[in-house]
Design a protein around this nucleic acid. Structure first.
Lengths: 211, 211
DNA sequence: TTAAACCTACCGATTACTCGGTATTTTTAA
DNA sequence: TTAAAAATACCGAGTAATCGGTAGGTTTAA
């Protein structure tokens, strides 16, 4: 699907040994997230990121040979992290909806990460942005997963069979993205968790799932 | 509210005469929109915009002395355009909701403009972005306007008095923003107008306004 | 005639990235 | 256990390209 930058292509890359460099790489990734949250990907200077972790620019480039590699490393890490959450909340529809609220609650304490990904998300709409494919794949996958959960609820006779699963999935994702943007714009005054709870509450009620 | 860069500060700027330069400035603004839609504001090069309209870089800078001036001119133009629409659809709640669908229908034919503003919107979350104040003011104003319409519907006895106007306003705006992002990511496969119609339809029904 | 429109030539700052090396660890083998 | 071997971790000093903006002038049009 997406380009692989330096992964193994089939046979084990016997190179890449682990060392204290692993901790350095982790430091770099979190520093990069912070910078991307402030300046976006295109505008952030990897030289600044290097200085943030007490490294020279070539020192950072030793770990991530190009700026794009650094970005892709962040996205790959996100893939790993979200894999847990996704799997955990895919059971039933009302579980998924409540899981989304839980995610929001957690996100409310990680504003920098959330902002970084929100900016990256919009940036990836640009012409030849290196994260374009990743964000498209992520959006598509998300919609399919959520829609599948709606479908399962229909199959189990939990909700009306006339429900448009794909539309409902898209709408849920849209609400989440939109609420997150409003919150990022004005974190102190806007309650995105409450906003999502209200939406989910009315949705559950209208689906007849309120217990 | 927002910073003024070169507007009149009270007395009429007696300078600034109109000429064929006006058409040039209009050309520049649309060219800039196209570039911002492709590369964002920070990453777009005003030299490219200049070439797009057959001008040298200093030629463009004659009309807009700095890159920020160019951005603010676009935002000011947007203010003028949206003023019409806002006023036109502020009557009653169901009129407003249907007006939103109409706006979406129109936006579906202006993908470049929509993308430019979506990217600008996210970019303006960055640290010292020159459009930060404008987008915050716009978001706040929008929420207040929509919430006021809900309030009026309550006062007129059209909808339940327990309705949380501000929350409903935020949710509507969130849905619109979110659907627009999904559409921008995949314009051929995602139907944002249909998505908004579905949401508005269910909202009207649940408010008891369906006629 | 006079201001606006526009150009060529240039500048200083920034940026991602390279080169050629040294220092630091870890692996390996005697 | 230890010391050579090898890979990794880093750095100082560039470099080529890009970009926003300026200086100072000529052309165009009201």
């Amino acid at each position: 699907m997406a380009e692989l930058s330096e992964q193994q292509t089939g046979e084990e890359k016997r190179r890449r040994r682990s060392r204290k460099g692993e901790t350095r790489r982790a430091e770099i990734l979190t520093a990069a997230m912070r910078r991307f949250a402030e300046d976006g990907y295109q505008n952030a200077a990897i030289g600044d990121i290097a200085r943030d972790v007490g490294l020279s620019l070539p020192g950072l480039l030793h770990h991530f040979p190009t700026k794009v590699d650094l970005l892709l490393a962040i996205l790959a890490q996100r893939d790993l992290e979200s894999a847990d959450f996704i799997e955990h909340y895919r059971s039933d529809l009302s579980g998924l909806l409540k899981g989304m609220v839980a995610i929001f609650r957690r996100n409310a304490d990680m504003i920098e990460v959330v902002r970084a990904f929100a900016i990256l998300n919009a940036e990836s709409l640009m012409k030849d942005h290196p994260a374009k494919a990743w964000f498209l794949a992520r959006a598509t996958q998300m919609q399919m997963d959520v829609a599948a959960t709606f479908e399962r609820a229909i199959a189990d006779g939990m909700i009306d069979a006339k429900t448009d699963s794909r539309a409902m999935a898209a709408e849920l994702i849209a609400v989440m993205d939109g609420l997150q943007m409003l919150w990022l714009r004005d974190p102190d005054r806007f309650d995105m968790v409450g906003g999502l709870e209200a939406y989910v509450g009315r949705l559950l009620a209208s689906l007849g799932l309120e217990g």
